[in-house]
Amino acid sequence: MKSYTDKIKEIAKRLLKEDKVDMVIGYRKGTVPLMHQPFFATSEGEVDSFVWDSNCGLNLANYITDRKERIGIVATGCNSRNIAVHVVEGKIQRDQLYIIGIPCQGMVDRHKLAAMAEGNIASVEEDEDKGTITISGQGFSKSVDKAEVLQENCSICVHRNPVLCDELVADEVTEQTREQADPYARVREIEAMSPDDKWAHFDDLLSDCIRCYACRNACPLCYCPQCFVDESNPQWVGKSVDPTDIRTFHLLRAYHCAGRCTDCGACVRSCPVGINVRDFTKKLEKDCLELYGWEAGLNTEQRPPLDTYKPEDPEDFIK
């Protein structure tokens, strides 16, 4: 991804030099492998820290909420959709932003790679031409096809190119069609289960949850000044790791993202115990598409479906 990295640096330098923006938000190499950090460059000298490869899975839209500066921001398909959601929800003005668009080729799943490794992963190399990822650590080294270790949300992604941007770092990549990607295969799998099996599936899914709220913190949609889980008067949900409290938290958090989630996968990536939180949000995404013909963040004009009323809105669940 050297060409992308170079182009990001070039654009960022130009923007800062011409005083078009006050800062550029991108990624720099993280302190641990597979986890690049968000990085705010405010001067030309800092621009050289920027990187781009398959470990840039955090969603940068998370860092522009309510900012007053003029911002240059690196954005893939899903990130740009979240920026659009921010613009619609009034959390940032479009004219404050200069969006550096990334035609995205997907991010690697750190949980999958960690499971493959025979020990701690010390370094990760990516071979762009061969399309392989090599992980190595003490006493082992392993190469795998990138396609095999893509994050699930990336492998089923149908919006890889930015939906809004001011400049692209490379030519657009080919989009998968819905037929090829089959984005809702996993949701259908769960839908086909009996109620008891579904209940057991989610019990099992959430059994490791430690209520660290990393999923909420990584999510660009979760920008409320005070989250419902932190309030104590009234206290909406128990704060313990009782299975009922955990389930209530995940249900409500997911529902707050209904019609806004772009399936960027930041929640799953940030989860320290590897819970696939997307089992909740993907269902809501599917419902929004089927009930309202809605996909979040495709433009900056339309209000989300749960924010508006139309006489033809489905209401057959009300008896």
Binding site: V187, E191, K198, W199, A258, K283
Partner: peptide, 18 residues
Amino acid sequence: MKNLLEHMGVEPERLHFS
């Protein structure tokens, strides 16, 4: 809401909106 609760394994018979 009904759909997600059903998705999580709450039976449709337990959920009523009126």
